[in-house]
Amino acid sequence: MATELPGTQRPGGRTERTRLAVLHATLDLLAERGYSELTVDAVAERSGVHKTTVYRRWKSAEGLVAAAFHLGTEDDWTAPDTGSLAGDLYEMLAELVGYFTTPGMRELPTASILAAFQADLAAGALHDFYQDRHARCAVITTRAIARGEAPSGTSPDEVVRAASGPIFYRLFISREPLSLDDARLAARAAAAAAAAGVFVA
């Protein structure tokens, strides 16, 4: 069940513009400063919204970050469709690699992961974001089953976890260089494991 967060409703009109201004300012400052140096006052100044309004709606920096993470569940992202399981997983991972390694982009996702270790609301919101992504990626596995690339009962969540795991391991555990070749290898390995029935419940 998704975490109930203040300031995540989409009211429309001026109120919605205010919400988006505040949450985008939060993400900008999170990427620039990190969670430990993020303040409500700084977000209010960056967004041009009076700090009384920001405090009233989001309560704290933690509330702001959690609500900002929720924005990721409102986008129109869809899973790739290349015609093969390995191809779909590779395209998904290539996007992930680019997001976490490209200067000017990597700062926000990295700061978001770190914030989740420092604030419970942020952790819950990040969990909800990835649950949303899992749900959107499920079609990758259901298509693979329909094509005969994986047996019936293969878990879509486990396929995504197996494919993504090596990427996050290199990013945050071993701190090794990360390239599209690593994405291709992880995709092929996860597809082969799926074909072998490893992820059947």
Rank of each mutant, 00 (worst) to 15 (best):
D88W: 05
A192L: 05
D81F: 11
A25W: 00
A66W: 00
A2N: 08
T52M: 00
A119M: 00
R161D: 15
A144I: 11
A44G: 12
G197H: 11
A163F: 03
L126A: 11
G153P: 02
G98H: 08
L185H: 10
A86Y: 00
V65K: 04
A123Y: 10
L96N: 14
V54E: 01
E4T: 10
L185V: 12
R143G: 04
A195T: 07
S60E: 09
R136E: 09
D120Q: 15
A116H: 03
A162G: 11
L71N: 07
S84I: 01
A79W: 14
T101D: 00
R19Q: 09
A66D: 02
L38M: 11
T101H: 00
A135G: 12
T73E: 09
P80E: 13
G13D: 04
A25Y: 00
T82Y: 03
E62Y: 04
M92D: 15
L64A: 14
P109W: 02
G197T: 04
I145S: 13
T8M: 01
S84R: 09
A67S: 08
V22W: 04
A163M: 06
V49E: 12
T102W: 01
D75Y: 08
L5R: 13
Y169M: 01
A194F: 03
E4C: 02
T3L: 13
D132I: 07
T102L: 05
D28P: 06
S60Q: 11
G13N: 01
S47E: 02
Y90M: 05
R56Q: 12
L89A: 06
E62I: 02
A2E: 06
G34I: 08
G104L: 10
F172V: 02
S36V: 09
T101Q: 00
R17Y: 12
S155M: 11
F168D: 04
A183S: 10
A189E: 14
P11M: 11
R184N: 10
A189N: 12
A186G: 00
L5E: 07
P11F: 13
L27N: 06
A61G: 12
